[in-house]
């Protein structure tokens, strides 16, 4: 799914890295717990979260994720936006709640992720 499609489906605002809207994501993960996010591995995924601190950006960076959607009207801080710009991670913000946002993306064909068992 194109990141621009995610933006349209979630009626989201683009916070930064608009250049990346044409890129594709192939899986998604929705969580406010970053260690749960780090337990899943997959290239080119989108992270949906209601958590707002710099570790959200670092977690996405570690996972090679190229888009983060902040749900329920949460907005990233300027420091977070700077960190995202350094890594070219597209930041989106939607008014939709986590459950609804995940449901919309899932029902439009963006499936979840498998846990990599050690």
């Amino acid at each position: 799914m194109k990141i621009s499609t995610i933006r349209e489906l979630l009626d989201a605002q683009v916070i930064c890295c608009e250049d990346g809207l044409a890129r594709h994501v192939y899986s998604a993960c929705g969580s406010d717990m970053m260690s749960d996010v780090l337990a899943y591995v997959k290239d080119q995924a989108v992270l949906l979260t209601g958590l707002v601190n710099s570790q959200v950006i670092r977690t996405a960076e570690m996972m090679d994720m190229n888009c983060i959607v902040f749900v329920r009207s949460k907005m990233p801080t300027p420091e977070m936006t700077e960190l995202a710009k350094e890594s070219g991670i597209v930041l989106l913000a939607t008014k939709k709640r986590m459950y609804e946002a995940c449901g919309i993306l899932y029902s439009n064909g963006l499936v979840g992720n498998r846990v990599k068992n050690g």
């Binding site: 970053m34 260690s35 780090l38 979260t49 601190n53 570790q55 977690t59």
Partner: peptide, 12 residues
């Protein structure tokens, strides 16, 4: 509340 402490750090 900062997004850590889910008991996944060492297992990860």
């Amino acid at each position: 509340s900062l997004g850590f402490g889910a008991g996944m750090g060492l297992p990860n």
